[in-house]
Simulated assay, not measured.
Amino acid sequence: MIISESANLHRLVIHKTGNKGKEEGIKFSKSPVQLNETIRDLLIRYFLSPFKQQEYFNFYHDADLSLNEVFHFSAAIFDDPGSFYLNSVNLANHLYECSSHPKVKPGELYISYFQNLELDGQALDAIGIFKSESKETFLKVYPDGDNFTIEHEDGININKLDKGCLIFNSERENGFVVASVDNLSKGSDALYWMDDFLKVRQRNDQFFQTSQTLTLCRNFVTEKLPETF
């Protein structure tokens, strides 16, 4: 279980990535964002509240784990926090290279560094990678003399994270512990986040083993029992 009450959003940089297949390009920030306390608290809520699942993953690579790009760049940040900005650019470039599916939307990419983010009772450092692809329209109402004025503005709903992942500085030898959400993409276009960009597979833990057992039982009931009776 992920508990965020004591988490500190230590660093944040924002880039913007487009669809490579449509040649939309990529835009880099020149430096990390300076946050006040109010914005920091809102971002922690926006980034972390969707992570309620008990399913975790590990990075992998068919040849060598160190060749997994997100694993490699994340390990470099954990080893040398001073390389945070440089490796945020590397992560953004890697995401852009994976964004060729025609349904991949452009959006802001948030690379963050958390301290004291709790995973199963252990306070850990973690890297967060989040992408906002959808905008919503908000109304702004404010006094204007003896009347009120209404204006509209497009922005991000902090209650609806589009997609993101948390990479915990734990179990490095197995590919770190990774949590991921994708609330926007469906079908084949969703694969670019999990399979192409992150390249993760389910962690071999109690949740995974229970799921495997339930799947075997379900398959037996649906396939074998009808043959018996």
Rank of each mutant, 00 (worst) to 15 (best):
V177H: 01
D62Y: 08
S6G: 12
F57S: 12
D182T: 01
V141L: 07
D41P: 02
N183M: 08
S31I: 11
H101A: 09
V178N: 03
K135L: 14
F114A: 01
Y192S: 14
S188G: 03
H10S: 07
L139W: 01
F73L: 10
A75M: 15
E173G: 13
L9Q: 02
V178R: 02
Q212V: 12
N116P: 07
K135N: 10
E153C: 02
K160I: 03
G25R: 02
P143C: 06
G128P: 13
F73N: 08
D195K: 07
S170H: 12
L109P: 02
S134W: 12
D62R: 06
E151Q: 04
F28N: 09
I156C: 09
H72I: 03
L42S: 11
L191H: 09
D80Q: 07
G25F: 04
N116L: 02
Q209V: 12
S132M: 05
F229L: 07
S49E: 13
G82H: 07
N36R: 07
L119I: 10
V13T: 11
S185N: 15
F47L: 15
I3L: 12
P143M: 02
A190C: 14
F229V: 07
N204D: 06
F229T: 02
S211P: 02
Y60P: 02
I129A: 03
I77V: 12
S83P: 08
G175L: 05
G21M: 03
H61T: 05
A190P: 15
I77Y: 00
N58H: 13
I127D: 02
D154H: 01
R45Y: 15
F176I: 06
I44N: 13
D162P: 09
L198N: 01
F208C: 15
S6I: 00
Y56R: 05
T228R: 08
N204V: 04
K105M: 13
S134L: 15
T228C: 04
